[in-house]
Design a protein around this nucleic acid. Structure first.
Lengths: 205, 205
DNA sequence: CGTGTGACCATTTGGTATTATAGTCACTAT
DNA sequence: ATAGTGACTATAATACCAAATGGTCACACG
C-alpha cells in the first residue's frame, strides 16, 4: 500500500528517501518561522546543504512542499479531534467534543502558528488536496458518530444519514475551515456549545 | 424622529437636501458600474455638476458615501426577506423562507451587482455601521418568528429564546454575511434546505 | 542506474519616482 | 446664514525598471 497521505500526487522522485524528510523538516521550520511567501526554495536548499535543483527531484513545485506541510498541520488537528472523541463512549458527548476540539485545535493553529495557519488558509482558498482530504476525514468522523448514536438509540433514525451528516457539517464548517475560521473569531467562544446544543436537539429521537 | 437609517453618524450638513440625494444617486450609479475604488469623489462631483468640496458638506468621507449605498443594498435584502416571510402565517415555513430568501437575495447581489457586493464585503470586513444594523435587523426577524412559533405551539419552549436565536443565527451566518457568502458558494444550492430542516428538527416541541 | 549541480529563462517581486486622490480651508457670492 | 468653489497638502495609488525567485535542463560523477 502506497501511503498517499505522505506521498501525494504533487510529489515526485523516490518516495522514501532521507533527503525528502530533510526537505520537509527544513520547510516546516522555515515556513512556520518566516512564512511560506518569505521562504525561498533556495533557502530550503541551503538549509539542507544541497542545491535548489535537487529539491525539485522530490517535489514538483514549492506549493507541493507547502501542501505537505499543510497536510501535516491538518492531520495534527484530525488527531486531536479523534483523541477528544475517544475520551467518551456516548455519541452525543462525542459530537460535542468533536466540535469543541476541532475549533480549539484550529484556533491554536491560528494563534500559535500563524504562519502555518496562513498556508492552510491559502490551501482552503485554492482547494488544495490536503484540505479536500481533511474535510473528507472530518465528514467521515461525523458520519461514524452519527451512526453510532443511531445504533445506541441516542439519535433519531428517520432522517437520511447523509442529509444529517451534510447539514451538521455545514454547521461546523465556519469553525473547521481555516479560511472561514478567521471570520468567525468573534463567535468561537460560544459557538461550539450553542451549536452543539442545537444540533443535538435536532438529533433527539 | 431622526431617520438614522438614511442619515447615519458619518453624514454631515443638511439632512434633507436635494443635493444629498443627487450624490447618493450618482454614487449608486458609479459604484455599481465602475466599483467603489475606481470611482473618485471628483467623478461624483462632476456627475452632479458641483465641485468636489461641496460633496464634503454632505458626507464626511468617501467611505460615508459607500456606507450609505451599502446600507441601501442591505435594506433591499431585508425587504426581500420580509416579503418572503409575509407570504405565509406558519412559523416553520416563515423560517424556511427567511433562510431561502436571504440566501437568494445575497446571491443576487453577488452575481448581478458584483461591484456593490464588493462594497458590502468590505463593509463586513471592517464592521461598518450598515452591516451591524443589517445583522441586528435579521436577528430581530429571527427572534420574532421564533416567538411566534412558540406561541402557536409549533416550536419547543424549553430552550431560552436568545440562545436558540443566537444558535440559529450562527447557522445562517455563512449565507447572510456578504463576506462569508463568497466562501460558501458551493453550498448555496442545498444549504438553505438542509439547514432549515436541521433547525426545524431542533425546534420541534 | 542514482546522486547532484551550475547555468539558464520567464515571471514575480521590491523599490522608487511620479502621479492621482481624499480631504481641508479660506474665501466669494447671495 | 446658506450655497458654492479653487487652491492646497498629505497620503495613496500607479508606473516603471532592476533584482530576486520559481522552475528546467543538460550534464558530471560514481
Amino acid at each position: 500500500m502506497k501511503k498517499t497521505s505522505t506521498y501525494p500526487v504533487s510529489a515526485r522522485g523516490p518516495a522514501d528517501h532521507e533527503v525528502r524528510d530533510q526537505i520537509v523538516a527544513a520547510a516546516t521550520e522555515h515556513f512556520s518561522r518566516y512564512g511560506y511567501e518569505k521562504t525561498t526554495v533556495s533557502d530550503l536548499a541551503k538549509a539542507i546543504g544541497f542545491s535548489k535543483a535537487y529539491i525539485y527531484k522530490f517535489f514538483e513545485s514549492k506549493q507541493a512542499i507547502g501542501e505537505m506541510i499543510c497536510a501535516n498541520c491538518l492531520r495534527q488537528i484530525e488527531a486531536e479531534v479523534s483523541a477528544a472523541m475517544a475520551e467518551t463512549d456516548l455519541a452525543p458527548e462525542k459530537l460535542r467534543r468533536m466540535f469543541k476540539a476541532a475549533t480549539e485545535a484550529s484556533l491554536k493553529l491560528f494563534f500559535q502558528d500563524r504562519k502555518l495557519y496562513e498556508i492552510a488558509a491559502s490551501a482552503a482558498t485554492e482547494n488544495w488536496q490536503a484540505v479536500v482530504a481533511y474535510e473528507g476525514h472530518i465528514q467521515k468522523l461525523l458520519q461514524d458518530v452519527l451512526q453510532e448514536g443511531r445504533q445506541s438509540g441516542d439519535f433519531e433514525r428517520k432522517t437520511p444519514l447523509d442529509e444529517t451528516a451534510k447539514a451538521i457539517y455545514l454547521v461546523m464548517r465556519p469553525y473547521l475551515n481555516p479560511l472561514l475560521l478567521q471570520y468567525s473569531l468573534d463567535y468561537t467562544e460560544e459557538a461550539p456549545m450553542h451549536l452543539s446544543n442545537l444540533v443535538l436537539r435536532s438529533l433527539s429521537p
